[in-house]
Amino acid sequence: MATPHISAEKGDFAKTVLMPGDPLRAKFIAETFLENPVLVNNVRGVQGYTGTYKGVKVSVMASGMGCPSIGIYSYELFSFYDVENIIRVGSAGALTEKLKVRDVVAGIGSNHATGYADHFNMPGTLAPTADYTLLSTAVEAAKEKGIEMHVGNLLCHDAFYNEGGMQESLEWAKMGTLAVEMESTALYLNAARTGKRALVICTISDHLVTGEKTTSEERQSTFTQMMEIALETAVLMEGK
């Protein structure tokens, strides 16, 4: 059953997969929140685990960084492993003073400075969006846990270091964009193309306006609120 990038067998993944970028964050989620987690993939060190959360089968697997990487993994999970829902749990940079470091943001849409959408050969401009059922369920889960979760558009950018610098990304705030990350466009478009569901939930790791930032260690193991929202969403989605 193995694909070029995943060594798992059919049935090894749950209906819902949480997808952080960092393999170490995947390991942290599995060991901290899942009961009886089993390593089902470790090709290229991209760790994937399956266990249970509140009695519901849940998986977590890293995506790596950028649209090409999450594009490969999400496509293979959707297309070959019967995965129905992928929830990215990642980090993002705030573009507005309405947010502060460690705030949680859900991306309803994905503005993009990436060529990923071009590969779908559509006769117009694709608008990558989250699945409404998954998003509304996550909003419900956040409210139940008493966690404030901001909902709005993200900016998905191919370049972490770009010639336009920070100011180029900040321009997107004029159009109400909340934060910038590097994976949402590919994930949302793959979900649309395969008829599946996707949602991006991010924690603000650094602030492009104020300059505040977190360490790599903090990003790996302290962004637990978005993890809890995603896990509760997985439980609620089991019957949908």
Rank of each mutant, 00 (worst) to 15 (best):
F80E: 14
F78R: 01
L77F: 05
P128K: 04
H112N: 15
A159R: 12
A117W: 04
S91M: 07
A94I: 09
G93M: 03
L77C: 08
Y116M: 06
M149K: 08
G115Q: 09
L134W: 00
D82E: 15
S74Y: 08
Y116L: 06
T96I: 09
F160P: 02
L154D: 11
K100W: 07
H157V: 15
L135D: 02
T125S: 11
Y132P: 02
G90M: 02
E140D: 14
A113G: 12
H150M: 13
S79P: 01
A141M: 07
T133D: 13
S79T: 09
F78S: 01
L155Q: 12
K145C: 04
L134E: 02
D158C: 08
A94Q: 06
T133N: 12
D118V: 06
G146R: 10
E144D: 14
M122F: 15
A117H: 15
G146H: 10
A113L: 13
S91D: 03
L126S: 05
M149E: 07
H119M: 13
Y132Q: 07
T137I: 09
K100I: 10
R88W: 00
A106F: 09
T133M: 11
P128A: 07
Y116R: 06
S110P: 03
L95P: 10
V89W: 00
Y81T: 10
E76F: 10
I108P: 00
V104A: 02
N153A: 14
T96Q: 10
E140W: 03
D103F: 11
V105S: 07
N121F: 14
T125K: 13
S79R: 14
A113C: 12
E148Q: 11
G90R: 00
L77E: 04
E144S: 13
V89H: 01
N121D: 11
T96H: 09
G93W: 01
H119P: 00
E148V: 14
V104I: 15
N111E: 10
G152Q: 03
V89A: 00
D118T: 10
L77K: 04
D118N: 14
M122C: 07
G152I: 03
P128I: 05
S79I: 01
A142M: 05
L95S: 09
H119Q: 14
Y75D: 14
V104P: 02
K98S: 15
V151N: 01
D158Q: 12
N85D: 12
F120V: 08
G115V: 09
T96P: 06
H150F: 15
V139H: 04
R102I: 06
E97T: 15
S136D: 12
V139G: 03
G90K: 01
A127W: 07
Y116K: 08
C156V: 05
H157D: 15
K98D: 15
V105F: 04
A159V: 07
E84H: 12
P123M: 02
I87H: 00
V83C: 05
A113W: 10
A106V: 04
E97A: 11
L135I: 05
G124L: 06
T96W: 07
A138L: 07
C156F: 03
V89Y: 00
G93E: 02
K100V: 13
G90Q: 00
L135F: 04
I108N: 09
Y116E: 06
H119F: 13
M122D: 05
Y132C: 06
A117R: 04
T133H: 08
L95N: 11
H112Q: 13
E97P: 01
A106G: 10
G124T: 06
A127D: 10
T125G: 01
G90F: 00
G109C: 12
